[in-house]
Simulated assay, not measured.
Amino acid sequence: MTIAPGSAPAASAPRHPLDPDPVRATKARAVFALGLMGAMTGLLLGGVVPATVALHLARQARREAYASGGFLTGAAWLRRGERLAWTGLGLVAVSVVALLVIGVVRLAEAPYGQDFDPTVD
């Protein structure tokens, strides 16, 4: 929002004294921590669980923040945690594909059937 030169910004409505103070959502920090764990352990295939839990918690935290009417903050932590969780899931997918390719190549190189001596008909 831009303000025209020479005009004063509009004052926000005064808060009611019984309104709660804005507080960072506790799930936002948990989403970030789980997303970080998911990204760090993604290549080891262990990142699936924390990344999935982080994405589910992020969904719940967004729903709660919307219902709170702006009194729950921490959207930046949620975004970072979701990005890290998706990065962890991407690393898990890369690891699974790499393991499948390695397995297929080793299977293709392995001899099949019985290996008889050259003197056997």
Rank of each mutant, 00 (worst) to 15 (best):
H56V: 13
E82R: 01
V49Y: 03
G74H: 04
R80G: 09
A85C: 04
G90K: 06
G88A: 11
G69I: 11
L72V: 12
L84C: 00
F71A: 14
Q60D: 15
R63Y: 12
F71M: 15
V53R: 08
A93I: 06
S68V: 11
R59K: 15
T87G: 06
G69V: 11
A54N: 03
R62G: 12
G74Q: 03
A85D: 01
G74D: 04
F71I: 14
V48L: 12
A67T: 13
V48G: 10
A76H: 01
R62V: 11
R80N: 12
A76D: 15
V92Y: 02
R79A: 14
L89W: 01
A51Y: 05
W86Q: 05
E64L: 09
T87Y: 08
A76W: 08
S68G: 09
V92R: 06
L89P: 03
S95E: 09
G70I: 08
S95W: 06
G70M: 09
T52F: 06
T52K: 00
R62K: 13
L78Q: 02
V53C: 02
R79G: 05
A67P: 02
A51G: 13
G74T: 10
L78P: 00
L78K: 04
Y66W: 00
L55K: 08
V94E: 11
T73Y: 04
V53E: 12
L57Q: 07
A76R: 06
V49G: 09
V48D: 10
W77R: 07
L55G: 06
W77K: 11
A65G: 14
V97A: 14
L57F: 00
V92G: 05
L55M: 13
Y66K: 12
R79E: 13
T73H: 04
A93T: 10
E64N: 05
A75R: 07
L91A: 00
G88L: 03
G74Y: 06
A54S: 08
G74V: 11
A54R: 06
A93P: 04
G70L: 09
L57M: 13
A65V: 09
G90F: 03
F71N: 14
A51M: 03
V53F: 06
V49H: 00
A58S: 13
L55A: 10
T73I: 13
V48I: 15
Y66A: 15
W77C: 04
G88E: 05
Q60L: 15
V53W: 02
W86A: 01
A65H: 01
E82D: 12
V53H: 09
G90Q: 06
A51R: 00
R63H: 14
L57R: 01
L72N: 08
G81H: 02
Q60P: 08
L57N: 05
R79H: 08
T52E: 01
L57W: 01
S68E: 02
H56K: 11
V94M: 13
R62E: 15
V49T: 12
S68M: 00
